[in-house]
Amino acid sequence: MTPILSPWTRPASAEKPAPKCLRQRVLVVEDELLIGEIAAEALTDAGYEVFMAASAEEAEVVLRDMSVDLLFTDINLGGRDGFELAQTALSLQPLLLIVFTSGRSWICHGMCQSAGVPFLAKPYHLAEVVETVERALRVTAIQ
C-alpha cells in the first residue's frame, strides 16, 4: 500500500536557482545532439535562456534572428568548423562572447589560448560548462 503524503510530510522539492534578472542567452552549437542537449539542459537549469543548433549553418540562422550573449560551440562540427562560425557570428553580433569546446584538446586549446578565447576540453562535467560560461560572462561584465 502506498502511503498518502500530506503537504507537511512531502519531501521538499529541489529548488531551482532563481532566474537571472536579465536572462542571458546562450547558443549551444554541437553536432553530437545528445551532448548538446545535456549541455543546454545544464545551462537552462543554471538560469540561462538557451538555444541549440546542430551545425554552423543552423547557428547562423539563430544568430540572424535573435541576439545572444554567448556562443558555446564545438570546434569540429562536421561541415564548417567552430572557428568559421565564430567569425561569421562576430560579424553578425560584434559584442558576442565565445567559448570553444572540443575533444581534440591538445590542438585546439593552444589555438584558443593564444587568441585569448575560453576553451573547455571534452569530455567535460556539466558543472564545468556552467562555470566556464559564467566566468566568460562575468569577465566581460567587469570590463
Rank of each mutant, 00 (worst) to 15 (best):
G47C: 11
G47E: 00
G47S: 15
Y48F: 13
Y48H: 15
E49I: 07
V50T: 03
V50M: 08
F51Q: 04
A53L: 11
A54E: 09
A56E: 00
E57D: 03
E57P: 07
E57N: 15
E58L: 14
A59P: 02
A59E: 00
E60M: 12
E60W: 09
R64L: 15
R64C: 11
D65N: 09
D65E: 06
S67G: 09
V68M: 14
V68E: 01
D69S: 06
L70D: 01
L71T: 00
L71K: 01
F72L: 09
F72H: 01
D74P: 15
D74E: 12
L77M: 14
G79E: 07
G79A: 15
R80K: 05
F83Y: 13
Q87D: 11
T88I: 15
A89T: 14
A89P: 02
L92D: 03
L92S: 03
P94S: 12
L97P: 04
L97S: 12
V99L: 05
F100A: 09
T101E: 01
S102F: 04
S105H: 02
S105V: 10
S105I: 08
W106R: 12
H109D: 10
H109I: 09
C112T: 11
C112N: 05
C112L: 15
Q113T: 05
Q113C: 03
S114F: 15
A115M: 09
A115E: 06
G116P: 10
V117Q: 10
V117T: 10
V117K: 07
F119E: 07
L120M: 14
A121H: 03
K122L: 02
P123F: 07
P123T: 14
Y124E: 04
L126S: 08
A127E: 12
A127F: 06
E128C: 04
E128I: 12
E128D: 12
V129W: 00
V129M: 13
V129Q: 00
V129H: 00
V130I: 03
V130S: 06
E131P: 09
T132E: 00
E134W: 06
E134L: 05
E134P: 02
E134N: 12
R138Y: 05
V139N: 14
T140Y: 11
T140F: 09
T140R: 12
A141Y: 10
I142N: 08
I142Y: 07
